[in-house]
């Protein structure tokens, strides 16, 4: 916090306005699944972010919603967000087209601690659209594979046509990639020959050094809850990274909405270790 004396000395006229968004043009749209699209955005000025940090994206005049970029932080002129249609703002976004203008501000929060993962095996567990921030993380892990141990991705979705990033999944599953990929769907279809069942089924026999490894999880609350329970058999509580979703308005610790125990998810998270949040009552509600 700034003391009053520090504040008195500050030139406030040069302060940035944290409530202001910059315009960004939609330069590409990929249909990922019946309910999920990836938008490539080109902001007026590049917005640097670290993997796992999030932005506030606005449909001008309607409102904002928080999203974690799914692209690599190493790409700086554009960024990608992968968005599931879930309500007002996301619904409107799904009806927008290339060339349309949205607003963005940020980045906010604390992203994935890559330095904590160095030299260690990394298990990445995703559910549904929860693979979005994890894709950004995976880009960073595979950009410098020698810095990390083995990288395993376990990803589950409702049905085969709900799996997102199909091209990347093909790549990652091809054997030529550093990523050891396993997929599952809740319900298969005629063409599906892979695993059927919840993603926790993929966590029983882990072919990696879990004792020294780290696990990173993102998905719907119910999936996060059961995945965490299962991971605790293998990993230290402080080595399990969870993405917490809360209602957000400001994104930087002032509006109060995202409170979680003693934390504000926007400022102290959105990524927390299990150890940080395990004693919070009704964590997954």
């Amino acid at each position: 916090m700034q003391t009053r004396a520090e504040l008195d000395r500050k030139n406030l006229d040069s302060l940035e306005n944290p409530y202001s968004s910059i315009p960004a043009e939609i330069t590409g749209i990929v249909d990922e699944s019946p309910t999920i699209k990836t938008f490539e955005l080109e902001p007026e000025e590049p917005m640097k972010f670290a993997t796992g940090e999030f932005i506030q994206l606005s449909v001008p005049g309607l409102g904002e919603a928080p999203f974690t970029p799914s692209s690599s932080p190493n790409v700086t002129d554009t960024l990608e967000v992968t968005i599931m249609e879930a309500g007002e703002v996301t619904g409107k976004l799904h009806n927008m087209s290339e060339g349309d203008i949205v607003g963005i501000r940020g980045p906010y929060g604390k992203g994935y601690p890559l330095e904590e993962m160095e030299g260690r095996d990394v298990l990445v567990v995703g559910g549904g659209v929860g693979l979005a921030p994890l894709r950004s993380l995976l880009y960073m892990l595979t950009a410098q594979p020698d810095d990390f141990g083995k990288i395993c991705l376990k990803y589950g979705a409702r049905a085969p046509d709900h799996l997102i990033y199909k091209d990347q999944l093909d790549d990652w599953g091809s054997g030529a990639s550093e990523i050891d990929l396993e997929l599952t769907v809740d319900e298969g279809d005629e063409d599906w020959e892979g695993n059927v069942g919840v993603v926790t089924n993929l966590l029983e026999d882990l072919d990696m050094d879990t004792e020294k490894g780290v696990a990173v999880v993102c998905g719907p609350p119910i999936m996060m809850k059961f995945t965490t329970q299962s991971l605790l058999d293998h990993f230290e509580s402080s080595d399990i990274y969870l993405s917490m979703e809360k209602n957000m308005s400001c994104g930087f610790g002032m509006c109060g909405h995202c409170q979680l125990g003693k934390y504000y998810v926007c400022k102290d998270g959105p990524v927390f270790t299990h150890d940080q949040v395990k004693d919070i009552p009704d964590l997954w509600e």
């Binding site: 009053r4 500050k10 406030l12 306005n17 610790g253 002032m254």
Partner: peptide
């Protein structure tokens, strides 16, 4: 309120100027 609006990383310029 200072703890909230005059954060080390982000300052609310509307609160801060009125305070100053």
């Amino acid at each position: 309120l200072d703890q909230i609006f005059l954060d080390d990383e982000i300052i609310d310029p509307f609160y801060a100027t009125r305070r100053q």
